[in-house]
Design a protein around this nucleic acid. Structure first.
Length: 613
RNA sequence: GACCCCGUAGCUCAGCUGGAUAGAGCACUCGCCUUCUAAGCGAGAUGUCGCCGGUUCAAGUCCGGCCGGGGUCGCCA
């Protein structure tokens, strides 16, 4: 894939080699910090390099003098690779020691051709070198439908995974099902409560005579889940099993009812994920891990390394829990790996803590060959990051790295008014509610709106989500603004069909258009922006920051709208130029390239580009 | 008390892993808008980058210490 920055860097390095050969520079210089970047200010040219300033210290020379020297060595060279082979450039040494490079426009025209030839694959990179990455996200407890916070995590994880794939990593998406702890027992008891209600309401029940008594005896269990969805599940359970469990002791029904509940809840969650367009390569069950002995294996691995011991922890600072008592427990030496305290692995009842299971899970990822691990969590799990990283470091002997992306809260608003949520008051808003609402307001593109907006903030920034704003058709709304640019490009192409034949309008044909006719500064600026897409992909992928793409797409849309508007004032700048089909084809090549790059970016986000609005 | 995140224009936020004069949108002022798709366009004004030190050719960006806001803090997940 054409990458002008890398290509120019090679030219620069060969010029520096020549200077070394001429004894103008000493051998053995460290070039790692020599960068070729787009300058912030377009007045500084197309490319800029800090070479003189980075090397000045090493060779004890004035950076400006050195810059002049390098500029002279670059003089007369040509770009040796890519579609722009043989193109020239000019170099200027400037102020503190920067080298500003201006490329022949032909270089940019070649970039434009490359976009048309690559299509939405433009921006694909090989920096990932097919290295495997495991992205774990959502992992919502199977105790009910997803809420908005889960939705953010789902979108961030999914987009990050797609971004990494585009950057050349071999990505694996996983969902960890927390189906082993006390919460799923509470879920099972809650479902059983609803089940009893269903049975008691059966007119023909053989237990009808005692239903009044039973009603009085019905007690909501500890940690009761009040949602309506459990009533549905209870009806299904009754349909399947009838009154079978009704008068049995808990020891009998708890297991089967729990299994049923988890299956039902995961079905709900899968529906929610499907509504968002999020898919996984694997769902990993905590209970399955425990059953398979994975926890024992992980703990054995830690024991082998001398990282487990029986000990008593200091009481936590701050608010002391009421029932605190010093007690010896099984601890992991997390402090050896940067955590504040050593962490318990067993509960007082002898069962594993959540942490123990999670250690086993991450150990399992490592054993499956993953060295790059990414977890996407809610910000309320922030206190858990260090211990998990400590465990990964310990179990992989430092070979694997875990990056945790914490997603901050989403605050829902409508027309500036906060949407108050309370589980107790029944005004709890599920993810599905939000998407349905958006479908209504935005015409069936609810998930696209939701996904895009979720990515318009860094993950660690709280996000304000206003139903009115995200569905309004105006420039203030980034989803609309970007989609409109895509639709507008499509619209221009439809109009072009009145001037040119279908064959002439294919991407392949447009790639052969006389692109040299594109010489307006605005046109070249737009091409430059489009050509930076591969760089954006690589940077965002390396930083694990998908939100950068949202900002890039807004930039592209803004530049495109700007050019379009310019055509209103200056007829010569219109895309469709009557009487000049060649120029028109060149302009259409640019229009198509805009659409392709936007589509390429939206694809990373899992958002469908629209051709009409 | 400890740890994590945040602090950039009046507001909401970017700032491309250290680059040149710190940006965008909203709001504000002024002008424009019968033409490829309309939901707008152009111009103007706006800053102790929370504060103080340090690292270096160069710091909003990295390090240390404060201040302010949020979150978390044994056997919940």
């Amino acid at each position: 894939m054409a990458n002008i920055f890398g290509d120019f860097r090679r030219v620069l390095l060969s010029a520096l080699d020549d200077l070394v050969a001429e004894d103008a520079l000493p051998p053995g210089l460290d070039m790692t910090r020599v960068a070729v970047e787009p300058p912030r200010d377009p007045a500084h040219g197309d490319l800029a390099t800090n070479a003189a300033m980075v090397l000045a210290g090493q060779v004890q020379q004035n950076p400006m003098v050195l810059a002049e020297k390098i500029a002279a060595a670059l003089q007369g060279r040509e770009l040796a690779t890519g579609d722009y082979r043989g193109s020239g450039f000019s170099v200027h040494a400037v102020k503190p020691g920067f080298l500003n490079i201006r490329l022949d426009p032909a270089v940019w025209h070649a970039q434009l051709r490359a976009i048309l030839e690559a299509g939405t694959a433009y921006g694909d990179s090989t920096v990932g070198q097919n290295e495997r990455v495991n992205v774990e996200f959502v992992s919502a407890n199977p105790t009910g439908p997803m809420h908005v916070g889960h939705g953010r995590g789902a979108v961030v994880g999914d987009a990050l995974a797609a971004l990494l794939a585009k950057a050349g990593f071999a990505v694996h998406r996983e969902y960890y099902i927390n189906d082993a702890g006390a919460q799923v027992d509470a879920l099972a008891r809650s479902l059983y409560f609803r089940y009893q209600e269903v049975v008691a309401a059966q007119p023909e029940s053989r237990l009808l005579h005692s239903s009044a008594v039973l009603q009085a005896a019905l007690v909501q269990p500890e940690g009761f889940y009040p949602g309506e969805y459990l009533k549905d599940a209870a009806r299904k359970l009754f349909q399947r099993d009838g009154e079978k469990w009704f008068d049995k002791p808990e020891a009998v029904w708890l297991g089967p009812v729990r299994d049923f509940a988890i299956t039902e809840m995961m079905a709900l969650i899968r529906d929610d994920l499907a509504a968002l367009g999020v898919g996984f390569d694997a769902f990993v069950s905590e209970r399955e891990l425990v059953r398979s002995g994975a926890v024992d294996a992980a703990l054995a691995a830690l024991t082998e390394r001398g990282l487990i011991y029986e000990g008593v922890l200091e009481p936590p600072k701050g608010k002391l829990p009421d029932d605190w008592e010093p007690r010896p427990q099984t601890l992991f030496r997390a402090t050896q790996f940067g955590d504040e305290v050593d962490r318990p692995l067993k509960k007082s009842d002898g069962s594993w803590t959540y942490f123990a299971g999670d250690i086993a899970y991450h150990h399992d990822k490592f054993r499956r060959g993953f060295r790059n691990l990414i977890d996407v969590w809610g910000a309320d799990h922030g206190g858990y990051v260090k211990r998990m990283q400590a465990a990964v470091k310990a179990l992989s002997d430092g070979e694997a790295a875990l990056d945790v992306k914490l997603c901050q809260l989403v605050h829902l608003f409508d027309k500036g008014e906060p949407v108050r949520m309370s589980k107790r008051a029944g005004t709890f808003v599920t993810l599905r509610d939000v998407i349905d609402q958006l479908d209504e307001l935005a015409g069936e593109h609810g998930k696209d709106v939701f996904r895009f907006i979720m990515l318009t903030r860094k993950n660690d920034q709280t996000l304000e989500f206003d139903f009115a704003k995200v569905t309004e058709q105006s420039k203030d709304n980034p989803v609309f603004y970007v989609q409109y640019a895509h639709a507008r490009a499509a619209s221009v192409m439809r109009h072009a069909a009145e001037m040119l034949s279908r064959d002439q309008l294919s991407d392949a044909a447009l790639a052969e258009a006389p692109l040299g006719r594109l010489g307006d500064p605005l046109e070249l600026a737009l091409i430059r922006l489009l050509a930076s897409w591969p760089r954006i992909v690589e940077g965002a992928a390396e930083a694990h920051e998908p939100h950068r793409i949202a900002f890039f797409l807004q930039d592209v849309a803004a530049q495109f709208h700007l050019l379009w508007t310019k055509g209103k004032d200056e007829a010569t700048l219109r895309f469709l130029v009557g009487g000049d089909p060649e120029l028109t084809r060149a302009r259409l090549a640019l229009v198509r390239a805009v659409a392709l790059v936007i589509a390429s970016g939206l694809r990373v986000f899992g958002v469908d580009p629209v051709d009409e609005m």
